[in-house]
Amino acid sequence: MTTFHDQVIAILPKLRVQALSLTRNRAMAEDLVQDAVCNALAAQNSFIPGTNFSAWMHRILRNRFISDLRKRRDTTDIDDVPASTFATNPAHEDTLALKDLSLALSRLPSEQREALVMVVIHGMSYETLAEATGCAVGTAKSRVFRARRQLEAWMMGELPANDKLSVKVAALRAALEQKQRVGARGTDLSHN
Rank of each mutant, 00 (worst) to 15 (best):
Y126V: 01
P90A: 06
E30I: 08
S102R: 11
C38P: 00
S21W: 08
G50S: 07
E114D: 14
Q112K: 12
E152D: 12
L61F: 04
Q34M: 09
V167H: 04
A43T: 07
D35V: 00
I78G: 01
G157I: 04
I78R: 06
N25F: 09
G138C: 05
S54G: 03
A40V: 06
L32N: 09
T95N: 05
K141G: 09
A97C: 05
V167Q: 15
V37Y: 05
N45W: 08
D74H: 11
A136T: 08
S166D: 14
N52I: 07
L165D: 03
K141V: 05
Q34C: 07
A29F: 06
D35S: 14
F145A: 06
G134N: 09
N25Y: 07
L22A: 06
A29R: 07
V144Y: 01
T85H: 00
A104C: 11
P160V: 03
P160Y: 09
R72C: 01
S84Q: 11
E93D: 05
A153S: 14
T133C: 12
A36V: 04
E114Y: 03
S46N: 12
A40Q: 05
S106L: 11
F145M: 10
S106D: 15
R70T: 10
D35Y: 02
A97R: 13
T85Q: 00
P82H: 07
L151D: 08
S110N: 06
E158W: 08
M28P: 00
A115V: 05
M156K: 15
V137G: 00
P82Q: 02
D100N: 15
A104L: 04
V81C: 00
L98S: 07
S142G: 14
H58I: 00
W154M: 15
S21Y: 10
A27I: 08
L41F: 04
V81W: 00
E30S: 07
C38I: 12
A130N: 11
R70E: 11
R146T: 14
I121R: 10
E30K: 10
V167G: 01
A161G: 01
L101A: 11
P90Y: 02
S110K: 09
R143V: 02
A97F: 11
I66N: 08
A91N: 10
A83H: 00
N89D: 15
I60T: 15
D77S: 13
F145S: 12
H58W: 07
L69C: 15
L98E: 10
N162D: 15
V117F: 13
C38Y: 08
E158F: 14
A97S: 12
M155K: 02
L96Q: 14
Q112E: 15
R149F: 04
V167L: 12
V37E: 13
E93C: 02
V117T: 14
E131L: 15
I121H: 09
A132W: 03
L101G: 02
A153L: 10
N89A: 02
A161V: 13
T23L: 01
S46G: 01
E30Y: 03
L129M: 11
M155P: 03
S84L: 05
W154Q: 14
T23V: 04
E111F: 04
D74M: 06
V33H: 02
N39P: 00
R26V: 13
R143P: 01
N89H: 10
R64H: 04
G134Q: 12
P49H: 05
C135D: 03
F65R: 03
E152Q: 13
E158Y: 11
R24A: 10
A147W: 06
S54P: 00
R143W: 15
G50M: 08
G138Q: 12
S102G: 14
L105T: 05
